[in-house]
Amino acid sequence: MLSSYVKGITGIFTPLSPILVVIYNGIDNPIYKIGENDRGEGLKPLAQQGNADTLAAYLKTFPGVKQVYVLPAPTTRVLLPVIGGQQGGVVSTEFSAAKGDRLAIATMYGFSNDWFFASTDNGIDATQKGDVSNTIQLFDNGTAVNQFPGAGITQFNLAGTPLKESKPIAVVPNPNSFTTLPEIAKIIKVTIK
């Protein structure tokens, strides 16, 4: 009985970093590509430290990128998870999109070494409406040795220094070698109105 009770009130959770939103046209997803190593354009600071500013500044100069936003939570900068029935962090922005425009997002899985949520493949049609949470996936940036989410002593958000590695960007399997994560739609929700 105690085991069932504890499982019901515990589990993996994470805050999210400010959300990077990119509107682009005529190019592939400018944030990342599966199978490539980190490009050195700012994804590493986002994936390791939750800092989207470097990547946002780079993307603003990238041909084909039309708009770039970094959306921090208003009071804490990070988006907190739903805890004890309280609402989790919420951010929003207005943007304009034309036919052919694509939209992609990225945010750090806060309690990780270098995991990030991002739009899959080439993002989504920026004129699409509704819940697009099913287009988000969890990726490993391949720039830091992975550890148990929220418990690794080298995780930046736990005052550690990530141990360097150099691997291609890949999807984080679920279950993975550390744990089974909740469904992505239970961690992050993306809606276009």
Rank of each mutant, 00 (worst) to 15 (best):
D28A: 07
T14Y: 07
K167E: 14
I169C: 03
L158G: 05
F178D: 07
T161W: 00
Y58G: 03
P168W: 00
Q67M: 09
P182Q: 05
Y58C: 02
L46C: 07
G11P: 11
G89P: 08
S92P: 03
I12N: 12
K167P: 05
P45D: 11
T143M: 04
I12Q: 13
Y32D: 07
F148D: 11
Q87N: 14
L79G: 08
I105W: 06
R102T: 04
L16A: 15
A73K: 10
S133I: 07
K167L: 14
G84V: 01
L20I: 10
K186R: 13
L55W: 11
N141M: 01
F117H: 07
G160L: 02
G142T: 08
A106V: 04
L2Q: 10
K193M: 04
V82W: 03
I19Y: 05
P18S: 10
D140S: 09
T180P: 02
T14H: 09
P72W: 10
K193Q: 14
G150D: 07
K66R: 15
F62L: 11
D131Q: 09
A104G: 11
A151K: 09
N174I: 03
E41C: 00
S3L: 10
Q147S: 14
G88M: 06
I12E: 14
N176K: 02
D140T: 08
V82P: 01
T143Q: 10
L181F: 10
K167A: 14
N113V: 01
D125L: 03
I83G: 02
G123N: 09
G84Y: 02
G8S: 15
F13N: 12
G42H: 05
L138R: 10
T191D: 12
S133Y: 10
D131M: 06
S96H: 13
L59K: 15
S96F: 11
V91Y: 11
F62N: 14
R77Q: 14
L181D: 08
Q49W: 00
E36Q: 11
D38I: 00
E36I: 00
D125P: 06
A126L: 06
Y69Q: 15
G26A: 08
L16T: 13
N174V: 05
N37E: 14
I153S: 12
S177T: 09
T14I: 08
A118L: 06
Y5T: 11
I184L: 10
N141V: 01
A57D: 15
G110P: 03
N29A: 02
L163C: 00
Y24G: 08
Y32Q: 08
G42K: 02
A106R: 03
F156I: 02
L181E: 10
G150W: 03
A47M: 04
S166Q: 13
A151H: 07
M1T: 09
Y32C: 01
N134G: 12
G35Y: 01
P30K: 06
Q155W: 02
Y32R: 06
G42I: 01
N146Q: 15
R77V: 13
T75S: 10
A170G: 05
N51V: 09
G40K: 04
M108T: 07
T180M: 01
L55E: 14
N29C: 02
G110L: 06
F117M: 09
D121M: 04
F116K: 04
P30V: 01
K164C: 00
T93K: 09
T143A: 10
G26I: 06
Q86R: 09
L79T: 05
L20A: 12
P162H: 03
N141A: 15
T179R: 01
P30Y: 07
Q137R: 15
I136E: 14
